[in-house]
């Protein structure tokens, strides 16, 4: 049994790691999405966490765990600083502002050679990230999100997602709650950045751009924001897809696009809404619960 697992991990280890890493990231983004914050800042936070942790392990010789937590904390601090002004913006403007943040981080990474290695990036990073660590972290994230959804705080977030003006009127501190979620999201993304940097020997500025932010946003949305396992399903689905479609060679990108489009069109509540899917008639009689628990 162990031998079979070893053989499997030798061939598919990186794929497993990427699935786990993206799942963690998906829960990080979920924290922001849970209060209707469509953040494109994920790439920026990941970059902050990645470069910070790599600097700590490679230049200062800090232990890996310390470096990852420090990367997460620095990203959280940055989230706090930019969150205060940015969270006063709504919808499209919030999205644009967080996108601008990711771009600023990318440009800094390109030009701050001493810390980031500039356009070339940093290579020869020691490999510290292990599969068991990622599994453990995903389990912790799952438990955390599970507990959060049942707490008073979780109920107030759900209220904010439904209608923030109404929640404010009911006495929910909308700004405070959003800010704390944004900071938590920054912390998780930064930590994932640190883990990712110590997985594949290399980081470069192009790793954490807009594309990364959009991918990260797609995981929970594809999987379903309202289900506990939604981000996990979305992240694993999106990560496995290019490998599963490998047989189709030139058609791969087209098929990937079509599949994702299908999910978005036919399962607007995410892939997890398949589980609560009912025949059309029954669904029509039910009051619309789109976006509710």
């Amino acid at each position: 049994m162990m031998a079979a697992l070893d053989a499997f991990l030798a061939s598919y280890g990186n794929l497993v790691n990427l699935c786990l890493l993206n799942t963690l990231l998906a829960y990080g983004v979920w924290l922001a999405l849970a209060a209707n914050m469509f953040t494109l800042g994920t790439g920026g936070f990941m970059a902050v966490g990645a470069y910070c942790s790599v600097y700590l392990t490679m230049q200062l010789g800090a232990p890996f765990a310390v470096a990852v937590v420090a990367g997460g904390l620095l990203a959280a601090a940055v989230a706090l600083v930019i969150g205060a002004p940015v969270l006063r913006l709504r919808g499209d403007y919030f999205m644009l502002a967080t996108f601008a943040f990711t771009e600023v981080v990318r440009v800094i990474a390109l030009n701050w050679d001493a810390v980031t290695g500039g356009a070339i990036g940093i290579y020869g990073i020691p490999r510290y990230t292990e599969t068991w660590q990622l599994v453990l972290l995903v389990l912790i994230a799952l438990y955390f999100v599970f507990a959060l959804r049942r707490s008073y705080f979780g109920r107030s977030i759900a209220a904010i997602r439904q209608d923030d003006v109404m929640s404010e009127a009911m006495g929910v501190n909308v700004f405070g709650q959003r800010l704390s979620l944004f900071v938590a999201s920054g912390f998780v993304s930064g930590g994932v950045g640190g883990l990712a940097a110590h997985l594949n020997f290399f980081v470069g500025p192009s790793d954490f751009g807009l594309l990364r932010s959009v991918d990260a946003l797609a995981y929970p949305i594809l999987g379903g924001v309202n289900a506990l396992l939604g981000p996990l399903v979305g992240a694993i689905f999106t990560t496995l897809l290019p490998e599963l479609l490998r047989f189709s060679s030139q058609w791969r990108e087209i098929l990937m696009g079509l599949l994702i489009l299908t999910v978005v069109l036919f399962l607007p509540g995410g892939a997890m809404s398949l589980l609560s899917w009912r025949p059309r008639k029954a669904a029509a009689r039910r009051p619309s619960t789109q976006g509710a628990e």
Binding site: Y12, N14, D207, P242, S249, R252
Partner: peptide
Amino acid sequence: DDAGDRGQTVNIFQ
């Protein structure tokens, strides 16, 4: 084909 994506390159190498 790694589609120019670093993660996929590592998957393929393994």
